[in-house]
Computed example of a mutant assay.
Amino acid sequence: MRQTNLPTSDTGILLDGASYAVGGRTILSGLTLRLTERRIGILGQNGSGKTTLLRLMAGLIAPTAGSVAVEGTDPAKDRRAMLSALGILFQNPDHQIIFPTVEEELAFGLRQMGRSGTEARKAALAVLAAHGRAHWARAPVATLSHGQRQLLCLLAVLAMEPRTILLDEPFAGLDLPMQIRLTRLLGGLPQRLVTITHDPAMVEDYDRVIWLEAGQVRRDGPAGPVAGEYRAEMRRLGGFDADTHLAG
């Protein structure tokens, strides 16, 4: 593994008037952002457009207006270039894992990058050994706990050595010990991290936080002040019985 000296591109991720609409509903509207900081948080409530924004940045969907570029490349048009530029960790590992054993799962992305089966297997075993999990190699993925499967997904991303990693609510459903382990691992990574979350505590020590609301940027700036304002607003909203209309 070469993680310790991994470079991060200064061009980062650029959104220029990027919008996304489906079925007549606008989910993201006219976002213009240049993401170059090492640690970036995207904060927002459920339904604010956070995950759609991540999917745009990853190239999993294309904007319906405007443009998205990752290191100068349209991620939706050049998936191969994105293999070394971007890694993605979703909140549900079962939506990401496709192979029956740990070794096969780790080797898959490496083979996509053009490595031979032998090279991919060797690199996969090296990743496991570097993280004290060599004994996982032949284990069926089905025998791993939810937290262990999430760690496996992260290791699969790290094996490919992307320059930026997108994290979509990475601690969802994890117990506290696993959250602590992943926090420690993520904190030491040289890659740029873009973390999607509804929890301000997760990103309040980041370099920058973008508060997304109804598909638009409400606040964008240093993490501490933006996370603090978001927390105060969530407390204010929590003081209202906003869901009483659902009672029948």
Rank of each mutant, 00 (worst) to 15 (best):
Q179P: 09
G188C: 13
L128N: 01
T118S: 15
P93M: 02
G114N: 03
R115A: 08
L189Q: 10
E169H: 08
T101Y: 03
A126V: 04
V102T: 11
G117S: 13
L193N: 05
A129D: 13
E104N: 11
T101V: 06
A124P: 02
H95F: 06
H146P: 11
T101S: 12
S116R: 07
A126L: 07
R192F: 04
H198A: 14
G173R: 06
E161F: 05
F108M: 05
I98T: 10
L182A: 01
L167Q: 11
G109V: 00
Q148F: 10
G114L: 00
E105L: 03
R138A: 15
K122I: 13
K122Q: 15
T164Q: 06
D199G: 09
H135W: 10
A156N: 03
A120D: 04
R133C: 14
F99V: 06
I196M: 04
P170M: 02
A126K: 08
L106G: 04
L174P: 00
G109F: 01
G132Q: 06
Q96K: 07
A120Y: 02
E105D: 15
L182G: 03
M160P: 07
L152M: 08
E103C: 01
P177T: 06
E161P: 04
R149I: 09
R181C: 10
T164Y: 05
R111H: 07
R192G: 08
V141M: 12
G173T: 09
W136P: 07
P93I: 04
A172L: 11
H135T: 15
A123D: 02
G187H: 07
P162Q: 08
D168M: 04
G188T: 13
P177G: 05
D168H: 00
V157C: 02
D94E: 09
S145V: 11
A120G: 07
H198G: 14
T143D: 12
S145Y: 09
P162K: 03
R163A: 12
I97M: 01
Q179V: 15
R138Q: 15
A159T: 04
T183D: 14
Q148S: 11
M113A: 14
W136E: 09
E119G: 08
R181F: 08
D175I: 10
Q179T: 13
Q191A: 14
L158W: 00
T118R: 15
W136A: 08
G132P: 08
I97P: 02
H95G: 09
A159W: 02
A137L: 12
